[in-house]
Nucleic acid binder design. Structure first.
Lengths: 237, 237
DNA sequence: GTAAAATGTCATGAAAATGTAATATTTCAT
DNA sequence: ATGAAATATTACATTTTCATGACATTTTAC
């Protein structure tokens, strides 16, 4: 499947994980699972799911702790979280939403309800921030259509170069080390040669160059910072 | 580098401690070791390592206990912990690990994977906070973008000159001996000719001069203190 | 399945940065 | 003024870092 969204299910009961997994599968999502907060955290950092279903009542009360932590760290703060809980207490809700959790589903729930909530949250979170096109001069990256255009002409590049450019355009005027770029673009704990980043930077520059007209060359936006990494900047190098 | 990061290895097997120690050394970390949870705790409080590698199978199950304790105490809660676990023998016990540990690695692991995970965790925990730009008149050094500007024009300099200027701008109005500058800019355990500092001072001054307009020359901020060293000062020499 | 596209690694050469030594200049006490 | 000491500047060999093209392999589209 082309662009299936991935949901991470975090629950210590296998029966619940299976049930949810089947429901998600039916609804056209792919899913992965974790039993513990630790396992979940590693999975999230490594594989960046589109949404996390998180059981409130994980052993050791670590569900809420994990949620707080995910929202605190920049790398994971954008990933929507739906909390699952058996309790209907208002306290929990307040506490959970306070942490920045996106929604809240109480057990027992129907698969249909769960799927509906998931879709709603995904729609909301992708609709707000990530769907807005980013524009720098005549260079535009449109997440909705997954397209990059320069002077309204499509810029041809591979998926990795797209993610790279997307990361740069959403984090302008900052240096990033090759390691950091790997974390953001490839996912943490993917072991690549450091130079691989260079190669993709080169490919991105080339794509921008061949799309640039005779005027300014947009590849100049991707700047090499010797000894430090790379930087996306509109200012002269 | 200015601050070499220190990793504490906590494992009861000497062979594993040695192996990890060598791997870390190769990767440019310095390391210290502890055999028992008690010894580890003393080391941590005493010497504040940047990260702890903790075997959870310490005698008496004290590895988990130590992790829990470290995360509970405010003084040590911010120190990242990576758990070393044997093969997932008893999943039930693994759940007890949900104490806020940052990552885990299952034995046997490759040194490469371990180092990559350590770097990733360190990036996540320390990379978030970034320093604010420092400005002196029209000279600005911005750590986030790793850039020096003078009247909004980029000042071109090498990495060493950047570190040098960064050190001076964060420690203005004080004289520093060449030795002290070496420690701060090159690192404590690097031996250089004393005159090397002079050369880099010269390069920094030159960079500032060629970026300065016809008005005041910013290289005057880097002042020679005969017989003592150098000083960064906004006051006339 | 097959062809095209994408990906990651390596080798190579170019460019930049670095540290040292040699030489030039400045400073200061006398 | 003069010479010694301290610092500045220059030149250069070496090392480090980066860009790029080639290539084998994997993934994707059809």
């Amino acid at each position: 499947m082309t662009n299936e969204q991935t949901i991470l299910i975090v629950d210590d009961e296998a029966a619940i994980r299976d049930m949810i997994g089947i429901a998600l599968d039916t609804a056209g999502f792919s899913s992965m699972t974790a039993e513990t907060a630790l396992e979940a955290h590693v999975n999230i950092v490594d594989r960046k799911p589109d949404l996390v279903l998180l059981d409130w009542m994980l052993p050791g009360g670590s569900g809420i702790e994990l949620a707080r932590r995910l929202k605190r760290e920049e790398l994971t703060a954008d990933i929507p979280i739906i909390m699952l809980t058996a309790k209907t207490s208002e306290d929990n809700k307040v506490q959970g939403l306070d942490v920045g959790v996106d929604d809240y589903v109480t057990k027992p729930f129907s698969p249909r309800e769960l799927v509906a909530r998931i879709k709603a949250v995904l729609r909301r979170s992708t609709g707000n921030l990530r769907d807005k096109p980013i524009r720098v001069f005549d260079l535009e990256l449109d997440p909705a259509s997954h397209r990059v255009t320069l002077n309204d002409h499509a810029v041809d590049m591979g998926p990795t170069e797209y993610r790279l450019l997307n990361f740069f355009m959403t984090h302008p005027e900052k240096v990033f080390s090759r390691d950091h770029i790997q974390d953001q673009v490839w996912g943490a704990n993917v072991y690549l040669e450091e130079r691989t980043v260079d190669v993709h930077i080169g490919r991105l520059r080339k794509a921008l160059t061949s799309a640039s007209g005779p005027g300014i060359n947009y590849s100049g936006l991707i700047q090499t910072v010797r000894g430090a990494g790379y930087r996306f900047s509109t200012r002269a190098d």
